[in-house]
C-alpha cells in the first residue's frame, strides 16, 4: 500500500547537510494500522510527509497504491493526494469556516456537486458523532471535537489511506483514547490503511498492528507490536517500551536483591500468551526442593495476547535452583537472573 525504498531526505541548514531520513526501507500493508515511533527530530515527521508529497525526498522512492510518486507530475500527485487523508496534531481547521464547510472543503476542491457534498458531510459528521455541530465554528469546539472534525475532513473523499501526524499529542489521555477508538473503527469499517506517527508508546500499544522505531533517520527496529513490546532489541525501543510496560524494578526491590546472600537468587520471568495461564511456579515448588517469593510483577495485554513479567526470588540449594531453572526454560517462558546491577 505504502512502500519506501532507500528513502533519503537531506536538509541544508546553515551550510550543514542534515539527513532527516537516511535510507528508509519500509512496507505498509493494505488494511493495517502501522505506527512509527521516535523521539522528536528522529525523522518521523519527514517520513509521513513524504507519503503525500508535503515533503519531497532527496532520493529514493515512495510508492503509494502502486504509484511511484517520484515519477508523477504535480497534477497526477494532486490526484493521488485525494486518495490520502491526513490528520494533524494541531487540527489545522479553517477558523473562518463552519464545521460543515471545513468537512466539505476537500469535496468542494474536487468539484463534487453541492447536494452530494451535503449528504456526504452529514454522513461524516454522524460517523464522528458531531452531527449537531455542523453550524458551529472550530473555536467553539474542544480539542477532541476539533480532532473529530479533522478526521471527518480527512475521510471526506473516501481515501484508502489515512495519515495521522501526532494526531493525539495535543489531547488529554481520555480524549486520546476516544480518538484512538475512532481510528480503530475507521480501520475496521472502511478497511482504510492507517499510518500513525507518534512519540507516545501508549498510542502504538492501543491500536497498531505493526510498529517501526525510527532514530536519526533510520528504522532501527520493526515488527509486530507484540514482538517489539515483548522483546525490544535496541536501547531506544527498550526505552519506549518501558514508558508503558512498567517493567523497571522498584528501588525497594533492588535493595532486597543487593542484600541477597547464600541460598537466594532472583530471576525475571517473562510469560507470553498461553504460558501466562499455567501454574508454573507452584509446579516448580512442588517438583524441586525450593521456595519461591514473588517480589514484583505485572501482566499487560498486547493485541489481545497476555504478556506477563515477574520478578521471583528462589530460595534453596544451588543445585536445586539450577534444576528448577532448567525445567522452567523448557516451557514457553524466558528466564533471566537478576543481579543487583541489572534493572
Amino acid at each position: 500500500m505504502i512502500e519506501f525504498q532507500n528513502l533519503k531526505k537531506v536538509y541544508n541548514s546553515g551550510g550543514q547537510q542534515v539527513a532527516a531520513l537516511d535510507g528508509i526501507d519500509l512496507k505498509i500493508n493494505k488494511g493495517e494500522i502501522f505506527g512509527v515511533i521516535g523521539f522528536s527530530g528522529a525523522g518521523k515527521s519527514s517520513l509521513i510527509r513524504c507519503v503525500n508529497w508535503l515533503e519531497k525526498p532527496t532520493s529514493g522512492k515512495v510508492i503509494v497504491s502502486g504509484h511511484d510518486l517520484t515519477a508523477l507530475s504535480v497534477r497526477e500527485i494532486r490526484e493521488v493526494k485525494r486518495n490520502i487523508g491526513m490528520v494533524f496534531q494541531h487540527f489545522n481547521l479553517l477558523n473562518s469556516k463552519t464545521v460543515f464547510a471545513n468537512v466539505a472543503m476537500p469535496l468542494t476542491l474536487a468539484k463534487v456537486p453541492k447536494d452530494e457534498i451535503k449528504k456526504r458531510v452529514h454522513e461524516l459528521l454522524e460517523f464522528v458523532g458531531l452531527a449537531d455541530k455542523a453550524n458551529s465554528y472550530p473555536d467553539q469546539l474542544s480539542g477532541g471535537q476539533k480532532q473529530r472534525i479533522g478526521i471527518a475532513r480527512a475521510l471526506a473523499t473516501q481515501p484508502s489511506i489515512l495519515l495521522c501526524d501526532e494526531a493525539t499529542s495535543a489531547l488529554d489521555p481520555q480524549t486520546t483514547s476516544s480518538i484512538l477508538q475512532l481510528l480503530k473503527k475507521i480501520n475496521k469499517e472502511y478497511n482504510i490503511t492507517i499510518l500513525i506517527i507518534t512519540h507516545e508508546m501508549s498510542v502504538i500499544r492501543e491500536i497498531c498492528d505493526r510498529v517501526a522505531v525510527i532514530e536519526a533517520g533510520k528504522i532501527i527496529e520493526e515488527g509486530t507490536v507484540f514482538n517489539v513490546f515483548s522483546s525490544p532489541k535496541t536501547p531506544t525501543a527498550k526505552n519506549f517500551v518501558s514508558t508503558v510496560m512498567n517493567d523497571q524494578l522498584p528501588d525497594s526491590i533492588k535493595e532486597v536483591i543487593k542484600k541477597q546472600q547464600g541460598l537466594q537468587k532472583v530471576f525475571r520471568i517473562n510469560f507470553v500468551g498461553n504460558s501466562a495461564g499455567q501454574p508454573l511456579l507452584s509446579q516448580v515448588a512442588k517438583k524441586f526442593n525450593i521456595d519461591f517469593n514473588v517480589l514484583f510483577g505485572n501482566i499487560t495485554e498486547l493485541q489481545g495476547t497476555p504478556f506477563g513479567n515477574l520478578i521471583v526470588e528462589f530460595q534453596g540449594p544451588d543445585s536445586e535452583i539450577r534444576r528448577a531453572i532448567q525445567y522452567i526454560s523448557q516451557e514457553k517462558v524466558s528466564i533471566k537472573e537478576v543481579t543487583s546491577r541489572a534493572s
Binding site: 508535503l54 500527485i77 491526513m86 487540527f91 479553517l94 473562518s96 476537500p106 468542494t108
Partner: peptide, 28 residues
C-alpha cells in the same frame, strides 16, 4: 497558520485554490 496551508496542500488543492479558499478567507 501555516498548518492550514499544509492541510490544503494535503487535500490536493492547487495554488490558486489555496489562495482563494484558504489564505484570503482565513486572513479576511
Amino acid at each position: 497558520d501555516p498548518g492550514v496551508i499544509e492541510a490544503a496542500e494535503a487535500m490536493g488543492a492547487t495554488p490558486g485554490q489555496i489562495i482563494l479558499k484558504f489564505l484570503i478567507p482565513e486572513a479576511l
